[in-house]
Design a protein around this nucleic acid. Structure first.
Lengths: 202, 202
DNA sequence: TTGTGTGAATCCCTTCACAGCG
DNA sequence: CGCTGTGAAGGGATTCACACAA
């Protein structure tokens, strides 16, 4: 659920200590939904929340982190050390949120062996070995479209748990392996669509 | 509508020339929806499609491009010449799809004046002037979270038509200015959420 | 016969409204 | 009282099913 991430983000504005509380109203005002929506969303996962008071900030943060699965560290391998890969690798929020990029792979001989910080770029051929040895959970796919499916197949066979895909292709994966697609062109098209047709409602 | 972009993408696999046709069934199989869904989506915008035959590939492409507003060129300014900005600037698909990055701005004195290809990075202070002089349609916001709202306000006042926002903040904009948010951490959280709870249904 | 276009049925998500607990 | 939790109502989107055109 995307909104849960928003709630978690919104809660960072509040003090975790001191037993403070937030109402569904307050959470709704950030994160642009309604109070009823917030309550429904949260009630799906149990009923923590004090009637007449609101939700305990600290408890709610813990709950949301558990629900979203960010109460642990995720081990990530980045495949594709191009521009997008480099941007992602440096993105400070990833590590801060528990996504730990422990390996970078590329198939370009000119890049293999180079160092990013103290991470050495290795050959994509080592993918399976890296996944197993480094106990990788997630693959961030930042390779050209033509290579994406092959890398995916190999990662899946090696036992990966999920894929964040930047390649503009629909990956074929077994049902139990979730894929999230990020397609920048489609985002721009969504913009021009909304501009072209007036109604800018999000 | 996000699915329309998918249809357009799927159609690239077919030959535009030669008066070929596609059925809703074929379009559905790529783009992972149902045939009924495809027909409903398209019927919203008129009924072009020959019963018993399918849709003319060439005509459908034209229609979709018109609907999505990609039958014209969009003039884009990139604000923020960091890692993400650089990745976006080099992203070959943007220009190919009609999104033309005609200016790059940054507020870091070390970057101002540098050249990317034959585009010179200019001072973010020039934003308003650039928007007007270069007849900019869209802003791609790749600045730190703290700077995002200020840049947004200025771009909106200068008459921008839409914003693609990479900063992890919810921008306040007038209702008629559409914003598309890209939040990489939220994508990863969506992944870990789905992994944590089993059901990987997209 | 084939595959679109579309009302009708269905499902799911959001909003409403309020009972009930602190 | 104030605010949560939740059944009920409402609305929008998906799916079904079939008349109809090529």
């Amino acid at each position: 659920m995307r909104r849960l991430s928003h709630y978690l983000r919104a809660l960072e504005g509040f003090d975790r200590n001191g037993g403070g509380t937030v109402s569904s109203e307050e959470l709704a005002s950030k994160g642009h939904t309604t109070a009823a929506q917030v309550r429904k969303d949260l009630s799906h996962f149990g009923s923590f929340g004090k009637r007449g008071l609101g939700y305990g900030v600290s408890e709610l943060v813990d709950r949301l982190r558990a629900i979203l699965g960010v109460d642990r560290a995720w081990r990530v391998v980045l495949v594709g050390a191009g521009r997008i890969g480099s941007a992602l690798f440096e993105y400070p929020d990833f590590k801060a949120r528990g996504y730990d990029c422990v390996a970078v792979l590329d198939s370009d001989p000119h890049k293999i062996g180079a160092k990013w910080g103290n991470t050495t770029i290795r050959d994509t051929a080592e993918l399976e070995a890296v996944v197993v040895r480094e106990q990788i959970d997630l693959v961030v796919l930042a390779v050209p479209a033509v290579a994406a499916q092959e890398v995916t197949d190999r990662a899946v066979r090696a036992g990966i748990k999920g894929i964040l895909n930047f390649a503009p292709v629909r990956l074929k994966v077994p049902a139990q392996v979730p894929v999230e697609d990020v397609n920048l062109v489609m985002e721009l098209e969504a913009l021009s669509f909304r501009i072209t047709r007036g109604g800018a409602s999000e």
